[in-house]
Simulated scan of single mutants.
Amino acid sequence: MTILTVKHLNIVDLKTQRRIVKDASFSVQKNSCLGIVGESGSGKTMTVREILGVNPRWIQSEGEIIFEGRNILKDNEKQRRSIRGQKINMILQDAMTAFNPIEKMGFQMKQTFMQVLGVSRREAERLSLESLKKLNFSDSLAVYKSYPHELSGGMLQRCMIAIALVLKPDIIIADEPTTALDSINQLEVVNQFQSLKEMTGTTLILISHDLGVVQRLADSVIVMKDGEVLEQGSVTDVFNEPKHAYTQYLVSTRQQLSDSFMNTLHSGGNKEYDYGGESPEKL
Rank of each mutant, 00 (worst) to 15 (best):
M224N: 11
Q29E: 13
L167K: 02
V116G: 05
T203C: 02
V190C: 01
N10L: 01
S267W: 00
A174T: 03
S267K: 15
S183A: 14
Q60S: 11
I207K: 05
G53N: 09
S152Q: 07
H8C: 06
S40H: 03
K110V: 12
V37N: 04
A164N: 11
L151P: 05
K134N: 10
A24N: 07
T179F: 02
Q111C: 09
P169D: 04
D274V: 06
C33H: 02
N71D: 14
V54K: 08
S128W: 02
P148E: 11
T200R: 01
Q86Y: 00
R80L: 06
L257S: 15
T45S: 15
E241K: 15
P101I: 07
Q79V: 05
G63I: 00
E272G: 09
V37D: 09
N191S: 08
I205W: 00
E103G: 02
N270I: 12
S27I: 00
V238Q: 15
T97P: 03
D226K: 14
L34G: 03
S208A: 06
L217G: 03
L165F: 06
T253M: 13
W58K: 03
A142P: 00
M155G: 04
Y249S: 14
T5L: 02
G106D: 11
N89E: 11
S258A: 14
S27V: 00
E272V: 15
Y144N: 09
G53H: 08
G277T: 15
H244M: 11
V119S: 07
H266K: 15
N263I: 11
V229G: 14
W58R: 06
T253K: 13
I163F: 04
A95F: 02
M114S: 12
Y246G: 12
L196M: 03
V166G: 10
C159H: 05
G106T: 10
S183D: 05
S258E: 14
Q86G: 05
S120L: 02
S183R: 10
R254Y: 13
F113I: 08
I207W: 02
S32V: 05
N10K: 07
V214Y: 08
Q29M: 05
D210M: 01
F113P: 04
